[in-house]
Simulated scan of single mutants.
Amino acid sequence: MILHPFKAVSAFFQALPLLFSPSLRLFVLAPLLANFALMAVLYTFALSFFTDMTDSMMSWLPAWLGFLDWLFYVLFGLMSFFLIFYSFSIGVNILAAPFMGVLAERVEEKLTGEVVQETVSLAVILSLVGHSVLRELQKLTYFLPRVILLFIVSFIPIVNIAAPVLWLLFSAWMFSVQYLDYSFDNNKINFRNMRLSLRQKPILCWSFGFIVMALLMIPLVNLFVMPLAVVAASRLWVGTFKLESAVKGNSNFGVRE
């Protein structure tokens, strides 16, 4: 467990040469374009919406709490940022999900030499698209109640002091679930069993999520985060989760939900 943060960092460094390898460039292009679209929308429209939302929240603040203006501005600013980011991310992830699933599949084949999907046809492609969208909606039903709960907690006096930390932890966990799930799904592990596997390695998953969050803060680099995270997550699947599932007798393997 102590080495898990280093394992997460190593996965990203090892993902870089794979990301730009000729055999994967085609599958990197689609999520990369989706990421470009997300950043363009965020920088074009979200900044003004972010300011308006924060100002609107500040207007609810009672006059007698005016001396804590700066603290609530930071708090509401963080909440606005996360809500806007989640909204745009959900749409982009749904659109890019089939491509990212194929990218995770190709990375696993490259690392293990095993063929994950033997046949490729129009029917298989359409089935993949439909299943990917359903899986993303499944993630949405998992994330949404927790986002709403955190949003409510953020308005409870005293308790809301911990809200920014809770948002950070939840965001890191969300990124782990989002990107590690593609490899689990490709290997027909249902969403519930995937979450159970991740819970057994919380430090590894949080470390992975925090790395994704840090990379998203870096201009230009954030455009490549989506495919890079998929490749790094595929390396963690092959090097950690898949091996342990095999050792345990494939106890986590099940039919897709």
Rank of each mutant, 00 (worst) to 15 (best):
L198W: 00
I189S: 00
G91M: 08
M217S: 11
A11C: 07
V28K: 01
P145Q: 08
V147S: 03
P157V: 11
D52G: 01
V165Q: 01
L33P: 04
R195S: 06
L83E: 02
I189G: 00
R195G: 07
P5F: 03
V212I: 15
F13H: 09
A63H: 06
L180S: 06
N186H: 05
L126S: 11
S251I: 15
E244I: 11
F99Y: 12
I211G: 05
L134A: 13
F67K: 03
G101P: 08
T51K: 11
V120R: 09
A96N: 03
L24H: 10
F88S: 10
D181E: 10
Q200P: 05
F175M: 12
F143I: 15
Q117D: 13
V247G: 00
S176V: 11
L29I: 14
N193I: 12
R106D: 02
F208W: 05
N35V: 06
T119Y: 09
L3T: 12
A34W: 06
M53P: 05
F210H: 04
L196M: 09
F50P: 01
P22T: 15
E136P: 06
A97C: 06
F76R: 02
S80T: 13
F88N: 01
L149S: 11
V9R: 00
S80V: 13
L19K: 00
P145E: 05
W173K: 03
I152Y: 09
T141C: 08
L196K: 10
M217G: 03
L122A: 13
A163G: 01
N160H: 14
N186E: 05
K110I: 11
M1L: 13
F27S: 15
S154G: 09
V107C: 08
L137P: 11
V230W: 01
V177K: 00
M58H: 01
K248R: 14
I90W: 07
V165W: 09
L16E: 02
L111Y: 03
F36M: 13
S183H: 03
T112I: 10
Q178L: 12
L196D: 07
N35M: 08
P22H: 08
L26Q: 14
M58N: 01
I211A: 02
G77L: 06
K7Q: 14
R135S: 12
G209E: 05
L122Q: 05
F224H: 00
V159N: 01
